[in-house]
């Protein structure tokens, strides 16, 4: 992590959450709209939806927002938790749990949701010089 001296302490409002899509990093939202334990949904350029979460340790996660069991785009509205050390979100509809890091459904091993690589970055500045890795 290298930071220019004048931006040594970037305010959290300056931090953006980015996810890696097929064609590069996509800025989804400000970091400070993500409160620990609660997700938000973001719209992707292709019309898809992603659910973003932040753990109480500051780690960020991004998974497909669509609940594969019902088809509704609601995973961002589920409750998060820790199960045997793994972070998960429970669907608010029928309560199936999904591992936030791998997308695997903890209650049905045949089911998995897409996950995205996610990081924070200071806004409008080249990621190469002012990147702050999540976690």
């Amino acid at each position: 992590m290298t930071l220019a001296p004048e931006t040594l302490a970037p305010r959290t409002t300056d931090l953006k959450v980015q996810l890696r899509l097929a064609d590069g990093w996509f800025t989804a939202c400000d970091l400070d709209v993500l409160s620990p334990g609660r997700g938000v949904a973001a719209l992707l350029p292709d019309g898809g939806q992603v659910a973003l979460f932040r753990g109480r340790d500051g780690k960020l996660y991004a998974i497909d927002n669509r609940d594969p069991f019902t088809g509704a785009a609601v995973l961002s509205r589920g409750l998060t938790g820790t199960h045997r050390g793994r972070p998960f979100v429970a669907s608010p509809l029928l309560k199936q749990r999904f591992d936030l890091a791998t997308g695997a459904c903890l209650d049905d091993e045949a089911v998995r949701v897409t996950t995205y690589e996610v990081k924070t970055a200071t806004y409008e500045v080249k990621a190469a010089t002012h990147e702050v890795k999540a976690g």
């Binding site: 334990g37 509704a72 785009a73 609601v74 509205r77 409750l79 608010p92």
Partner: peptide, 19 residues
């Protein structure tokens, strides 16, 4: 407290099957 609430309490409304 907001982060503790089930989705219905979190949105002060009842989630239905299509979201």
């Amino acid at each position: 407290q907001a982060a503790l609430q089930d989705t219905n309490d979190h949105f002060l409304a009842n989630l239905q099957r299509n979201g």
